[in-house]
Structure formats: C-alpha cells, structure tokens
Amino acid sequence: MHRLTKRFRPGARFNNCLFLLLFSLLLNCQQLAIGKSIIDNHVEEYRVKAAFIYNFIAFTQWSEISGPTLDLCLYGEDNFGPEIDLLQTRPVNQLSIKVTRLSDLQHLQNCHVLFISRSEAESLTSILGQSQGKNILTIADSQSAASKGVIINMHLDENKVKFEINLKSARNAGLNINARLLQLATRVYQ
C-alpha cells in the first residue's frame, strides 16, 4: 500500500491538469467574449507576457539554484513597467522571484532568467555569447530570436501571445524544459 501511495499522487496529477487547463486558456482564449482582442495595446501585451514568463519559470528545471531566490533579469528597454514586478509576490517551486533590471551584462552570472528586450535585438548574438555555458533561461520577444539561440521566444500572432522553444539551447544551458511546455510551443528547435 505504501508503494502505491508514493507512485500515485492525486494532488500532483490534479495540479498538472489544472496548470495545463489554465495555461491552455491563456494561450488559446486571449480574446474577450465580445470578440475584441485583449492585446490591443502595449500594456496588455506585456501583462500577458509577464504571465507567460512566470509559467516558463515554473516549468523549467535548473541543474542548481543556491539560495532562496530565483533571479529574473531584464536587459534592455523595460516594456513591462510595474507588471513584471508583481512576479516577486508569487513564489515558484518554493523560491521567491527577484526582478532585476540590468544596464549592462557585468552581473549576468547572478541571473537564472534573462529577458532580452526587443531594443537589444541587434546585440542578440553578443548577449547570447556572454550567457553561453551558464545555467540561464534566456527569453526574448524579438523576431527569429529562438532560431538564433534564445531558449524561449514570444511573439504575437493574430493578437495572441505565442512562443517557440530552442531545445538545443536549453540543453546547452543545462536546463530541462517540461514536456508539457514543449507541447504548447508553436515551434521547437532541436
């Protein structure tokens, strides 16, 4: 009986199903009942992207995180405003999220997650070179960023936020992306 209890954890299965339901709703139902897109302005777009980032963090495993915080660093123009700071009130996997805005990449080694703003798209290759070999989840919202090596890239498609994943880059960074997240991606680069 004890072995069966260890293998079958109804609570874990319920949480996984609940996540898939909520995340699928976020992905597929980003429209109001009246048919007007909720992503009709810049603020709404980045509010939804902040929610996506939280879910990306929740379904990524790092090989090692020491300390009680998971450091989310923003590099480049901050389009999120205070919206991204709200993630600091929501723990993930028993860790607090700490949001830091970087003006340069000198403190990149302190980051577990690096969001690279569109304003830095021209420097993407250089930025990725500096994060190479580090246990950092890179996220962007620039055209073709995943094909260039960013681990998760968000984009708008018919006013809905969608994302693609570069699995090879994730493996090179020592990160494990949950299979459920991979299933929801519009494209997975191997």
Rank of each mutant, 00 (worst) to 15 (best):
H2D: 13
T5F: 09
K6C: 06
R7F: 05
R9V: 14
P10N: 09
G11N: 11
F14L: 15
N15E: 15
C17V: 14
F19R: 10
L20Y: 15
L22C: 14
L25I: 13
L26Q: 15
L26Y: 14
I34V: 03
I38C: 11
D40H: 14
N41W: 10
H42E: 15
Y46M: 10
R47P: 06
R47F: 10
V48W: 14
V48T: 15
K49D: 12
K49M: 14
I53V: 13
N55Y: 08
I57Y: 03
A58D: 10
A58T: 09
T60V: 08
T60L: 01
T60K: 02
W62V: 01
S63E: 12
S63T: 13
G67C: 03
T69P: 07
L70C: 02
D71S: 11
C73W: 02
C73M: 05
Y75V: 00
G76L: 03
N79E: 08
G81A: 09
P82A: 09
E83S: 12
I84T: 06
L87C: 03
Q88N: 00
Q88F: 00
R90W: 09
V92Q: 03
V92T: 12
Q94R: 10
I97K: 02
K98C: 10
R101Q: 12
Q106R: 14
N110Q: 15
C111V: 09
L114H: 08
S117C: 05
R118Y: 04
R118E: 13
S126G: 11
I127S: 04
Q130E: 11
G133R: 03
G133H: 08
K134D: 04
N135Q: 11
T138C: 04
I139M: 03
D141C: 02
Q143T: 08
S147M: 07
G149C: 05
I152R: 02
I152P: 07
N153Q: 04
L156G: 03
D157P: 02
V161T: 11
N166R: 01
L167Q: 08
K168T: 13
K168C: 03
S169L: 04
S169K: 07
R171P: 01
N172L: 10
L175W: 00
I177N: 04
N178H: 10
A185D: 00
A185I: 06
T186N: 07
R187T: 04
V188H: 01
